[in-house]
């Protein structure tokens, strides 16, 4: 275990970033299982574009990144608010896009 930690020391891991990436991987695994259990196909949503469930995840993640950046650039309040907005945004994307 010690040697494994040493091997990846150059990547400068922190528990916060490790949690973030674990969350992303877990999301991908969950989406894969969901797609296997219940295939989604394509859908024409409010943006006027055809999307699959994977597309909607991509739009959610990319939009969430921009929501966090916009929050950092404009607002002074805690970043958790941006995370809450991102979750609401992602739910809206999965419902209507």
């Amino acid at each position: 275990m010690e040697s494994l930690t040493q091997s990846f020391a150059w990547m400068a891991w922190t528990w916060q970033t490790a949690t973030f990436f674990t969350g992303i991987v877990a999301l991908l695994v969950f989406m894969t299982i969901w797609e296997r259990v219940s295939p989604s196909g394509e859908r024409h949503g409010v943006l006027g574009i055809t999307t699959t469930r994977g597309d909607r995840l991509f739009i959610s993640l990319l939009g969430s990144a921009y929501i966090h950046l916009a929050w950092l650039g404009v607002m002074t309040a805690e970043l958790w608010w941006a995370s809450i907005i991102s979750v609401v945004y992602a739910l809206a994307v999965f419902r209507w896009v």
Binding site: A9, W10, M11, A12, W13, T14, Q16, T17, F20, F21
Partner: peptide
């Protein structure tokens, strides 16, 4: 991933963050 890790830290070299 490494770039993300660097982006939330500061370093002055010697692998210290």
């Amino acid at each position: 991933m490494t770039v993300v890790n660097y982006s939330v830290q500061d370093t002055f070299g010697n692998n210290q963050f």
